[in-house]
């Protein structure tokens, strides 16, 4: 699943413009305050002011009193719209939702919840990572809405969200207001799993992995499970397998499941990343087959267990190793 996405090899995020002050998180909430908002006319704004100058000159030239009045009304409109544009972005409260961990190469999706605590609605708010795709939302008065921003992950470990650029040109597109929000949001990037062909170490074999049984009893038949590569032929229930499709292995009470040790030293890659990659693939496979597995890394080892939590724990350990 990870390799289905083709990344341009030269992909790089442009560095954020540091001369703009960014709003930072207080109590995990970012408030777009007065100090963080910047405003400039758009090119429509410039065109508008040009037209106003034209109208003013015309009014002077033809001594059109009402021409003055209308020119000034439009000038007032432009000025007021500047305030409204500013107001459309100001005082928004941004909270980052936790980003779900992804595998390296996949798209990390950061979700921002933007709350509007004022009693006027906000329209056409853009949010984007610098240089990235933007998301547009409206936010109702006293309401909130969420923006989804994506970032392509490259390598394992913590991926920090770059500063987010919020902007708007509502209501009349004459002004562009923007602000940067600095967040400490991070997304955990699991290592890129190697190719699926790298098979799981055998539960019975020595060296590469070892079997650990809590109680080595064969006494109490508990049920069947599907055959996995490396299961002892003695355990295959041939009778049952002939009735069902595929091989079935007998399981006994007290054994629970076969216990795998996924050992860093058993991997064959030429460098660290390849080895981690292989371990990741093994964790995926083991989890898919619902095996009980443990992880043994140079500085850390995780006791064998099953379940989503354990799965994420193992992948986290691999990601930040």
């Amino acid at each position: 699943m990870a390799n289905s996405l083709n990344l341009p090899s030269d992909f790089k995020l442009s560095s954020p413009k540091t001369w703009f002050r960014a709003a930072t998180a207080v109590n995990s909430t970012v408030l777009l305050g007065r100090k963080h908002l910047y405003i400039l006319p758009t090119r429509f704004g410039w065109l508008y002011s040009l037209l106003l100058v034209g109208l003013l000159v015309g009014s002077i030239n033809y001594s059109l009193s009402l021409g003055f009045a209308m020119t000034f009304l439009l000038a007032g409109l432009g000025t007021i719209s500047m305030l409204h544009t500013w107001r459309n972005l100001a005082y928004l409260k941004i909270t980052f939702r936790r980003a779900k961990p992804v595998f390296a190469g996949e798209i990390a999706q950061f979700e921002l919840v933007v709350a509007n605590e004022n009693n006027f609605a906000r329209y056409n708010i853009f949010a984007s990572f610098t240089g990235g795709e933007s998301d547009v939302q409206d936010i109702a008065a006293l309401g909130e809405n969420s923006f989804k921003l994506s970032l392509i992950s490259q390598k394992r470990g913590w991926l920090s969200a770059p500063r987010v650029r919020f902007s708007t040109e509502f209501p009349v597109s004459l002004f562009h207001v923007w602000a940067y929000a600095e967040t400490k949001s991070q997304c955990l990037i699991y290592p890129n799993p190697g190719l699926p062909s790298q098979r799981l170490p055998s539960a019975d074999a020595d060296g590469a992995s070892g079997q650990l049984s809590s109680s080595q009893g064969d006494e109490d038949f508990a049920g069947h499970r599907h055959y996995q590569f490396g299961d002892s032929p003695k355990r295959v229930d041939w009778k049952a397998s002939s009735r069902e499709q595929g091989l079935l292995v007998k399981q006994f009470q007290g054994e629970a499941t076969s216990t795998l040790w996924l050992d860093f030293n058993a991997t064959t890659g030429s460098n660290l990343e390849q080895r981690i990659s292989q371990l990741t693939r093994w964790v995926l496979e083991a989890d898919k087959q619902a095996l009980k597995y443990g992880l043994r890394l140079p500085q850390q080892s995780i006791q064998p267990s099953t379940g989503r939590n354990h799965y994420h724990q193992c992948l986290t350990a691999l990601a930040i190793m």
Binding site: F68, A69, L73, A75, G76, L77, T79, I80, S81, V172
Partner: peptide, 14 residues
């Protein structure tokens, strides 16, 4: 609303 709020500016300028 925008036009109403622009009116005081217009009057002063006028």
């Amino acid at each position: 609303k925008l036009l109403m709020q622009a009116t005081p500016i217009m009057l002063v300028l006028f």
